[in-house]
Structure formats: structure tokens, C-alpha cells
Design a binder for these strands. Structure first.
Length: 420
DNA sequence: TCTGGGGTCCTAGGACCC
DNA sequence: TCTGGGGTCCTAGGACCC
């Protein structure tokens, strides 16, 4: 029988910060979203002070009861590298791992003996190697493993590991668990189920499949089967190629001149082209959007978006040229722009691109492609942003998101190594 | 002054094809 | 007079996830 495990880091971003700041153990820590906008990760101590996911920093920062909270801007370079380290440790313990998000990994545990014992050892090794505490849940399907993981987090008595492999363990749990705890059943779906009188997992599981399908389509039917122990979702060791890629940001301050907006968009486009090249893919469709952001009194919301089909490319110069042209068409004087972004869709592997007869070179790469690759190589060697296109370098940095409480990139940047 | 960023999948309806 | 059966692709919108 198949057995799936899910390992998930506790307050992952906060735990990464604590890993290099042991003085913060036992203290309330919060990590903020980009632009220091809102709370996206909280330690148990911060949660118990009443800080909720998504609380706006500017509204809570001065509350007297939160004076001891240690706030951090988000440091994705650090979190991504810590995630990679956790993956390495797990890979040494189980036959196959599927990274599901930056702080969660599914594992194939089929056929292993003493699974619970092994999971305790795994948790210990992850903690020893990275200082990041985790919880593990396991069961016959991914959906059950996910639920088991939530149980392990909620019940300290389980010592971080929850076993839902046997249906007799599940029956009691299902009676006391609201449907909203189930992976894939969000707010809307739970409202719909509520009108049918279904509020607990056990009520949901007892619904006839046909009725589930009628009300929640095949998506709900799959979750329904998974909760009954019928596996519908496989472990995906090789990640499917991505279908789209986006780089967007809210600005640190409103932008009122086209030059500033263009500089921001050219930086986003450069980052987008790096993402494409890192996966040896190209995009045939480029989108640009800009908006005033959240509506406010006395400020009319405004947003615009454009897209263009292009000769498939990942070359930074071509992408920037198209993005700049669309931005110029959309720009309106007198509007305070607070957010913008670029998106690539219709992504395909570079070696599947039909060649343009008139610009063909020997290896199918243009001059711009070669320069882009050379820039990647230099930036990999000497640090991000060492070489940039001129369009990104000009002008001021008014658009840059706020990040006033940024920790060091302890593990990925020589100048920022921890000092002992 | 003040609220993140990045994804995936499914459905319904229209256009079009043979 | 009245009119089959089967398909694909695209888009917008909804829902969900971390």
C-alpha cells in the first residue's frame, strides 16, 4: 500500500531568522511581506500576542502590547537556501521527495519499516543540520498526510509526528475536524458545504460521491476519495515545466514619472529573463501591467495591462524592448502608480523554438542571447546585479520596495557571513 | 505614507473544424 | 421541410494553494 508523508517547517521564515539569531529563541518574531507590508510568518509567541496572518504592519507596529516583537523584512535569498538544505537532509532519509512549497515536502514512505520512528529521526536530523523545527504527518494519500501534518502541529503531545495510516485512527479525528482544515477545501467551498449541512470532515466523507461531484465538480470528488484513503494524487519527483512566470512589486513610494516606472519595469523584466534562462526556456507572450494599488478615499483606482506575442525568446534586450514599448503606450500622466509587473506566458523549452529564417545564426542564438548568457555567468561569479542593462541603471531607486529590517544573507553571500 | 508575490487547475461558452 | 455527431482551442472568471 502506498504511504505518503508531509514534512513542513514550523513558522519557516521566522525559524530561518532564529537559526542565525539564537538570542531570539522564546521571543515573538514576525517576518513581513515584501515592501514591509503585512505579517506573513509568526512564531508561536507572536501568534499568542494576537498577530494574525496578513495584519498590516503599519497598523500594528506601535501597539504597546507588541513592543517586544522582533520584526524582519523578508529575506528570500536566505529562506530559499535554507529550504534547499532541508531538502538535502530529507533526500538522505527517504527514497523520493517532492518539494511542494518553500517549506513543505511530500515524501514517498511506501514499504518502509517503523515509519514513525524514522520520522522522529528525520526531524531530529533536519533540526541539527538547519536549526529549523518541523512536523511530519503521514497516511495513505497526500490529502491525509497533509491533515496528519496539521494534527502534529496542533498537538504538542504528538512530539511532531502524526500517523494517520490506519482508518481507525482517522475515524475519530474526522468527527472533530472542520472541513475547512482539508487541503483544497477553501472558503467558498466550505460555505457551499455549510448550506448542505456539512461542516465536519466525517460528514463530508459520508456524502455520496455523485453528490460531491455534482456540487464540487471533479476537484471535490478527488479530495473526497483521497480522504477515504483512495490515492488520486501521485508524488511528482520531477516538477512539471512552469506555464507562466511573473515578476511584480509594490513600490516603496508612489511613482509619478515615466522614467522611474520604466526603470522598475526594466528591472523586473531582467529578473524575468533570468528566470526563463535558468530553466532553458523562452516565452512567446509578454504581459505588462501597472496600477494605483489599493483603492483609497479620494483616489480613483486605475490599472492597465497589455500583452504582446513575440518571437520566442529569453534574451533580456528583446524582452525589455517589448516591455518598454507597452509601458509607454499605457503610461498616463497624473496617475500615482504603486504597483507594476511583467509576466511571461506560452513558455516552451529553448530547443523547441522554430527558428527565424532571417536572423538565424550557427547555433540558433542571437547576439542578445549570447550577451544575456555572459551577463548571467558574470553575475553568478561576482554577485547579482554586477552587470546590468543601461535601462536598469539610470535614474533613482524610488520604486524599490521598503525592506528596513532585512537580515543578512548568511548562507549565500560572502560579505554577509555570520560572525562568531 | 501606510495592505505581498507567485503559482495551479477547472468550467462554461464561443468560435471553428470535419 | 428541416437539420448529426464529434471534436479542438481560446478566454474569462472562479477557486484554491503557499
Amino acid at each position: 500500500m502506498a504511504l505518503f508523508g508531509l514534512i513542513d517547517a514550523n513558522s519557516f521564515y521566522c525559524s530561518c531568522e532564529r537559526a542565525f539569531r539564537p538570542d531570539l529563541v522564546g521571543r515573538p518574531v514576525v517576518v513581513l511581506s515584501n515592501n514591509d507590508g503585512c505579517a506573513i510568518a509568526r512564531t508561536a509567541e507572536a501568534k499568542s500576542l494576537g498577530i494574525r496572518m496578513g495584519d498590516a504592519y503599519h497598523l500594528i507596529r506601535n501597539k504597546p502590547e507588541l513592543r517586544d516583537v522582533v520584526w524582519f523584512s523578508s529575506n528570500y535569498a536566505l529562506y530559499a537556501d535554507m529550504s534547499r538544505r532541508i531538502f538535502e537532509v530529507i533526500s538522505g532519509h527517504v527514497p523520493s521527495v517532492e518539494p511542494y512549497s518553500i517549506d513543505e515536502m511530500f515524501m514517498d514512505l511506501s514499504g518502509l519499516s517503523d515509519v514513525a520512528g524514522r520520522m522522529h529521526v528525520l526531524r531530529y536530523d533536519v533540526l541539527r543540520a538547519t536549526k529549523v523545527p518541523t512536523c511530519v504527518g503521514f497516511g495513505p494519500t497526500k490529502t491525509i498526510a497533509k491533515l496528519a501534518n496539521a494534527m502534529a502541529k496542533a498537538n504538542p503531545g504528538m512530539a511532531g509526528v502524526c500517523d494517520l495510516s490506519q482508518s481507525r485512527y482517522r475515524d475519530a479525528l474526522y468527527r472533530d475536524t472542520p472541513v475547512s482544515e482539508v487541503w483544497g477545501l477553501g472558503r467558498r467551498t466550505c460555505e457551499k458545504l455549510g448550506t448542505l449541512g456539512v461542516t465536519t470532515v466525517s460528514q463530508f466523507v459520508r456524502m455520496p460521491s455523485a453528490r460531491v461531484r455534482k456540487t464540487l465538480t471533479v476537484v471535490g470528488e478527488r479530495i473526497h476519495a483521497e480522504l477515504q484513503g483512495v490515492s488520486c494524487l501521485d508524488l511528482e519527483e520531477v516538477s512539471a515545466p512552469r506555464k507562466g512566470a511573473t515578476v511584480s512589486r509594490s513600490f516603496g513610494a508612489a511613482i509619478v514619472t515615466f522614467d522611474e516606472l520604466r526603470q522598475a519595469l526594466m528591472t523586473f523584466t531582467s529578473r524575468l529573463s533570468e528566470k526563463l534562462r535558468a530553466e532553458n526556456s523562452v516565452a512567446a507572450n509578454l504581459h505588462v501591467f501597472m496600477s494605483t494599488g489599493f483603492p483609497a478615499p479620494g483616489r480613483a483606482p486605475h490599472g492597465s495591462a497589455r500583452q504582446v506575442r513575440i518571437q520566442p525568446t529569453s534574451n533580456v534586450f528583446d524582452l525589455q524592448r517589448h516591455a518598454a514599448a507597452m509601458a509607454l503606450e499605457m503610461w498616463r500622466d497624473g496617475i500615482e502608480y504603486r504597483k507594476a509587473g511583467v509576466m511571461a506566458t506560452e513558455i516552451l523549452p529553448q530547443d523547441q523554438v522554430p527558428q527565424d529564417l532571417f536572423s538565424l545564426t550557427q547555433d540558433g542564438k542571437s547576439r542578445g542571447d549570447r550577451i544575456s548568457e555572459t551577463m548571467d555567468a558574470i553575475n553568478a561569479r561576482f554577485g547579482k546585479g554586477t552587470v546590468r542593462t543601461l535601462s536598469m541603471a539610470l535614474g533613482r531607486d524610488t520604486w524599490k520596495p521598503r525592506a528596513e529590517m532585512l537580515s543578512r544573507r548568511y548562507t549565500t553571500c560572502l560579505e554577509e557571513l555570520p560572525e562568531v
